[in-house]
Amino acid sequence: MTRALAILAWGAVAIFVGVPVIVAALSPLHAYRSPSYVAASLTGVLGLGVLLIQPLLMTNWLAGVSLARLRRWHQRSGAVLVVLVAIHLGGLLIASPPDAIDALLLRSPTPFSVWGVTAMWALVLSALLVTLRRKMRLNPTTWSAIHNGLALVVVLGTVIHAIQIEGTMGTFSKWALCLAVLTASVAAVVRAQFRTFFRWKP
């Protein structure tokens, strides 16, 4: 029974992440793009996929793997997310420097750029928070509250960024993944915060 549930849970995650990635990878738009732009598009889609896995790794909802191992994977997939965003931005800077610089300076004509850049800076702050965890000597409750807050900014910024873009992702699979990311993130953060504040253990 537990095994069946584990297969079901991991299978659902694989479908929510895998289908949009495949749809985006098969987009006809890639034919008209430079390699750097293709890399930027696909790392963006993969990054959105990581945002679904990332919160789930900090819960006990994905059965079959020990919590300690899932926690280590949360750290690794966080590092992967930082690398994906770096390639995403680097690729865009090579593809069209003026457009990418406009986005970074918050003077781009496209509203989704501001959301993408907001999510990027929240991710950078979150990465710093993780790297300097020992040195900062923050109270663990405070540390996780800040980390969770930044994570929600990353998620919300990225989802609005992705939804508004007319790009390689399919409309339906993009919406499905975005809604799944929002649901998983909010649920995981609520669970984490309630566990700390009220010693509640679902």
Binding site: S96, P98, D99, D102, R107, S108, P109, T110
Partner: peptide
Amino acid sequence: TMRGGANN
């Protein structure tokens, strides 16, 4: 002039 109009 529109934002980003002069790009490229």
